[in-house]
Design a protein around this nucleic acid. Structure first.
Lengths: 146, 146
DNA sequence: CATTGACCTTCCCATTGTGGGAAGGTGCAG
DNA sequence: CTGCACCTTCCCACAATGGGAAGGTCAATG
């Protein structure tokens, strides 16, 4: 199977498959006589695993660990759970931040007329807030469902 | 006032102040005879404004728009509210994704023994999930409270 | 006065993940 | 044979930030 087919079936772009290979995240695919990478069901399954962990928001570094654990038959589930818990805590923390910002933003949007006049509580607050909130920024890991 | 002082008072690092200036996000600071940038209360207020919008999670591009609106006395609050609403929607969308992942992760962590044995529902699910969830990844905009 | 340490300047590099695109080879259909 | 759709590698860009080098400046202290 060619790389574009593997990409289609796994949901990982050909570009990313090559990249993952280059950084050692996945094993180098076998090559055909013409130099083309060749993929089988096993490889596609691996790519799907990677895609799912990515979709869950794990970093490539964490994905690498998970892949290693996945294929290690003598792993301890403790390790896996530790990783999952850490990531979960991370997500929860970021969600808490975002909730604060969301609340503030909602309040401000509500207070702003949103018409032709220049008066704007939103800008006023940004210039001199009563409470300060922080949030993580657009990471872009939202899977385009194409 | 020197740049490090302005950094301290605004909460924006000197590095970032220079960067913001270089990309035209903020006006170039005046220079002293020795070539040092010079800051006054006005500039510090501007930097604080930028820092707060950043803390709220607006991109630098959006910050640029907000800064422009802020200093434009003939602005319409409509514009400002539109930006805020867009960002709010963005945050809500990402939170929704994260909530899904959080739920999934919680369930899996709960189901995993987390001991020396290799059996692991977490890996099983990543390999062949029942429901697929996606989340945005660690953006690192969490303000270090230093 | 000279030295020292804490500033300042500009420049370049790294990060994380992803996509764009060029330049060149391959494979198949018409 | 031509054309088109693949494949290959390689470099560039992005967001926003930090690290650090090389060199200039300033103030205090010996």
């Amino acid at each position: 199977m060619n790389i574009s087919m593997a990409a289609e079936q796994s949901g990982v772009s050909a570009k990313m498959i090559r990249y993952y290979e280059s950084i050692g995240l996945i094993e180098a695919a076998g090559r055909r006589d013409n130099g083309y990478r060749d993929y089988g069901d096993h490889e596609v399954a691996m790519l799907q695993f990677v895609r799912r962990t990515r979709d869950m928001g794990f970093s490539l570094e964490e994905v690498a660990s998970l892949v290693a654990l996945w294929r290690n038959r003598r792993r301890s589930s403790r390790e896996v759970r530790r990783l999952a818990e850490k990531h979960l805590a991370d997500i929860e923390a970021r969600m808490a931040e975002m909730r604060t910002v969301s609340r503030t933003l909602k309040r401000l949007v509500h207070a702003c007329h949103g018409d032709d006049r220049p008066e704007c509580p939103i800008l006023d607050d940004l210039a001199a807030p009563k409470t300060t909130a922080k949030v993580a920024r657009r990471p872009g890991r939202a899977r385009k469902v194409k």
